[in-house]
Design a protein around this nucleic acid. Structure first.
Lengths: 221, 221
DNA sequence: AAATGTGAAGAGGTTCACAGCG
DNA sequence: CGCTGTGAACCTCTTCACATTT
């Protein structure tokens, strides 16, 4: 029914979903592609929105626009956001902490069920009722916690090994904050999803632009 | 000399730079596009690397490969990483803290020079010698601190206003962690560069894939 | 012989423009 | 008449294949 590579960008669908959720709170019941585009800002084109939504099945009424509530529900379904998800966090420094706090506060359908850290001073502590364990206990802890998604927020050198351990425990989705492209040996054909969040890489885009603009201005003068 | 949109992806250049820096530590002095691709993992193709590097000016020797040190230096120059950069952090919760700790520990050329927060209990505290101020003091604080790049780690509703304030104080580059696409009124033609880091959006890519795979398996059976 | 530099082919995603419906 | 749905044009980025150079 729903294919993986059907030419729609998932982050974009998520943006639609978020905008709709916010607009729904204001009591509107129907919306056009043009209005939705305006909500999303300059980056969005109406034609793009129509094409995306159309790819999920015709959800609009010509001449009227889209019924917001069904659309929002359907987007949530496609994005997998109508389910609850259990998260394991590997690396409970500031970043792991920040991520835990973020999803707990903001995304009610995500819950942190397991936490790992390498530091003996952190192991044994509790966060919101979840005990921090050593990664060597991963197998035992995850058998009970039954997590779907892992967030890796450990130092770069440890990331690859931690990722392999987690995959071995049945994790199939990874959000990787460590500044390394994880190269996972995709054993026995299981498919694993990884998203990398590369802070230093993003920063370098900014510095590149700043440096380039500065150069251009010098040249101009 | 260096153009902005010359068909090269900056994150990719940054990945090359990082890989080279790591490889340099091992004492090699020359590297081929194929070897570099192997260092980067499955995502990289030798032809792509050659094309990218070629676009920066011919830096290799046919039959031999690329001299690593000059290449690394040149990449750093293009990325703007040979300069020092001053960072202001808006929002000093876990995420702001995590970002501050990350760049301080890992990126010697980036330094946190100003911190803002809305909470009275945080304002007045110090972090590594930097005092946390109220955003209302932005003008005064930033006049002294002279920052280049802002990281916005405040709650979504506050993000747009904070961003505008910072732009008004001469900031031209923003790393935005708030789950909102910032719509900046680009006043008087100044160009501002924004990178969004959308944790919830990245998560939704994972949930989408997990949900889709689960569906496919049900269908199979 | 070996690996770069690069035009040409290809793939993927975006925008256009208009037919089709309500 | 208004807005969706959608094939076609378009554009950007990636991959291929080979001429070129050391």
């Amino acid at each position: 029914m729903i294919e993986a590579g059907f030419g729609v960008s998932i982050p974009r669908l998520y943006a639609y979903h978020r905008a709709l959720r916010e607009a729904l709170a204001e009591g509107r019941s129907t919306i056009t592609s043009t209005e939705l585009a305006r909500l999303l800002g300059e980056s969005a084109a109406p034609a793009q929105i129509r094409k995306d939504l159309c790819a999920l099945g015709a959800l609009g009424r010509r001449g009227h626009g889209y019924a917001m509530k069904p659309l929002c529900t359907h987007l949530a379904f496609v994005l997998g956001l109508e389910r609850d998800w259990r998260i394991v966090i590997a690396g409970f420094g500031y970043l792991g902490h920040a991520f835990a706090a973020f999803i707990t506060a903001r995304e009610p359908r995500f819950s942190v069920r397991a936490i790992f850290d390498a530091s003996p001073s952190v192991i044994g502590q509790e966060w919101q009722g979840v005990r921090v364990s050593a990664i060597t206990d991963a197998k035992r802890v995850l058998k009970d916690a039954c997590c779907d998604i892992a967030a890796i927020a450990v130092p770069a050198p440890a990331a690859a090994e931690v990722a392999d351990t987690l995959l071995g425990c049945g994790i199939h989705a990874i959000l990787n904050f460590a500044p390394t492209r994880l190269r996972l040996q995709r054993k026995n054909g299981e498919n694993v999803v990884v998203r990398n969040i590369d802070l230093a890489g993003e920063l370098s885009v900014l510095t590149h632009r700043l440096a380039t603009v500065a150069l251009a201005q010098i040249e101009e003068a």
